[in-house]
Design a protein around this nucleic acid. Structure first.
Length: 335
DNA sequence: CCTCCACTGGAAGATCGGGAAG
DNA sequence: CTTCCCGATCTTCCAGTGGAGG
């Protein structure tokens, strides 16, 4: 049934990326100076989720490594490593400078110092979901680090730049900005067909089933591949030799629930209480929410802390918080 | 229209937990 | 063992704000 499961993994980078030629060329050209021993400017990739930003960044770096022997690269997901410390640590990891800082008592400043003393070969760092970085000013330090080239990846161009201070904004203003549009249905079909060819035995998935997937995901290739993966796994478990329509349908809804579940699991007990209250009520006013939380929690945190929890829940897309000041309500998000 | 105050979110400092050093 | 130091978490304080309700 499944011939190569890796092809359906979210982090898989294909050998041939389809429908993104101009974006790849543009990104390659900004990195081109490195091949002549010169520094390269940062670039900024932006567009909706699942449009291939991360994929193209990693693909382009792999190609660069093939042409240029002496180059270091690293991928940092700023959603996971959102603090200054974690980001720097991850970046140092890419040049093996972390061997002796597995201890916790190394201050952030020292990590930065270490990085700025770096004088090895060119170092290209992908900062994925860079808009999630807690302290954007670290980008300025990275910008000034010699031999270091940043590839920034985010969803919303305007929103990201508005979060920067003016100094940083003007520096990054000149960076190559590459926009990624949503995939059309035809493009999605093409991507899925490619994956299917490598991942599963022929004739396991029909054309019209791929079409169903492509219709269901609104241009998001990551979700589309996730659905394909789930459907293939489900079919494999039941030892069927083909994926039927029902399996596809199940996988479509499963893929939507999946992200939510993993996010809910990451919550602490108190955060979970807040989340449950909102889910129960569907919609609730701030003061009422805190009262309910105080009741339920064995050792309630302060109001301010609960507000931090709420921003985190919004962040994970578990709830939404429309309205400002007095008009604010917290609402659970249904699929 | 205006006023009020519930609510937000930044800043600064305290506390927690855990690893390293003495 | 204790002491020191770090990031992460949490609290306390408060300025700013804009929608509700006159």
């Amino acid at each position: 049934m499944i011939t190569d499961a890796r092809v359906l993994q979210p982090e898989f980078v294909p050998n041939d990326v389809v429908h993104r030629d101009s974006e790849i060329n543009y990104l390659s050209s900004t990195l081109d100076p490195l091949t002549r021993g010169k520094p390269a400017d940062p670039s900024f990739l932006h567009g909706p989720p699942g449009t291939g930003k991360t994929c193209i960044a990693q693909y382009t770096l792999e190609k660069l490594c093939e042409n240029l022997i002496n180059v270091n690269t690293q991928y940092v997901n700023c959603w996971e490593d959102y603090s200054k410390f974690k980001t720097l640590y991850r970046i140092l990891e890419g040049i093996d400078k972390t061997l002796d800082i597995h201890r916790q008592s190394t201050p952030t400043d020292e990590l930065l110092e270490r990085l700025q003393n770096y004088n090895g070969p060119p170092y290209v760092v992908i900062l994925d979901e860079v808009d999630q970085l807690e302290d954007k000013n670290i980008l300025y330090d990275l910008y000034r680090t010699k031999s270091l080239t940043m590839i920034l990846v985010a969803n919303h161009e305007e929103e990201f730049f508005s979060q920067l201070n003016s100094r940083l904004r003007s520096r990054l203003q000149t960076s190559a900005r590459i926009h990624f549009d949503q995939y059309s249905k035809q493009e999605l079909m093409c991507i899925l067909q490619n994956r299917v060819r490598w991942a599963v035995r022929p004739d396991v998935v029909t054309e019209s089933q791929l079409e169903n997937i492509a219709d269901a995901v609104a241009g998001d290739a990551r979700v589309a591949i996730g659905i394909l993966r789930n459907a293939a796994q489900n079919a494999a478990q039941t030892h069927s030799d083909a994926i039927d329509d029902e399996t596809i349908e199940d996988a479509v809804s499963e893929a939507k629930v999946e992200i939510r579940q993993t996010n809910v699991e990451k919550l602490t007990d108190d955060q979970k209480i807040v989340y449950d209250i909102i889910t129960e009520h569907g919609e609730i006013a701030p003061s009422e929410l805190y009262e309910a939380y105080e009741q339920k929690a064995s050792n309630p945190r302060s109001q301010r802390m609960v507000r931090n929890y709420l921003t985190k829940l919004c962040h994970y897309n578990l709830i939404e918080a429309p309205g400002k000041n007095r008009g604010r309500i917290y609402r659970s998000i249904q699929n």
